[in-house]
């Protein structure tokens, strides 16, 4: 049976400016869907989060995928990612004075 995992990498964290989830190591997985849900009404204009990968969990590079940050409470956005190596995280740079309280979950499958 294939291994799957729903990992919570940011829960009820209020993002502003430069923000990122904790790194998630998942070299065993072939595919991932990353969901972003706003737990509270976002403030200000919302940008796009970017999926980042890493050779070591410490140095990060944009994978090429973006996810729009939700613009209202309980809205959900997502992106599909595959062939990401060992490490994943979601990072974002929010416009000045904007905030978003997020739940970021990564759903992985071997």
């Amino acid at each position: 049976m294939r291994t799957s995992m729903s990992a919570i990498v940011a829960r009820n964290e209020t993002w502003s400016g430069d923000a990122a989830t904790e790194p998630y190591e998942a070299g065993w997985a072939q595919e991932a869907i990353i969901f972003v849900r706003s737990l509270k009404t976002p403030a200000g204009p919302q940008g796009r989060a970017r999926v980042e990968i890493s050779p070591d969990g410490m140095n990060w590079v944009w994978e090429g995928t973006e996810i729009p940050l939700p613009d209202r409470k309980d809205a959900v956005t997502f992106a599909r990612v595959s062939h990401f190596g060992t490490w994943l995280r979601l990072a974002a740079t929010l416009p000045e004075s904007s905030t978003n309280t997020v739940l970021v979950t990564i759903h992985l499958k071997s």
Binding site: T3, M5, S6, A7, I8, V9, R11, N12, E22, Y24, E25, A26, G27, W28, P55, D56, G57, M58, N59, T86, W87
Partner: peptide, 15 residues
């Protein structure tokens, strides 16, 4: 508790 995150399956990958 709010600081806790999900465990991982790791191959102890190092730079």
């Amino acid at each position: 508790y709010a600081q806790h995150t999900s465990p991982m399956l790791s191959s102890l990958a190092h730079w």
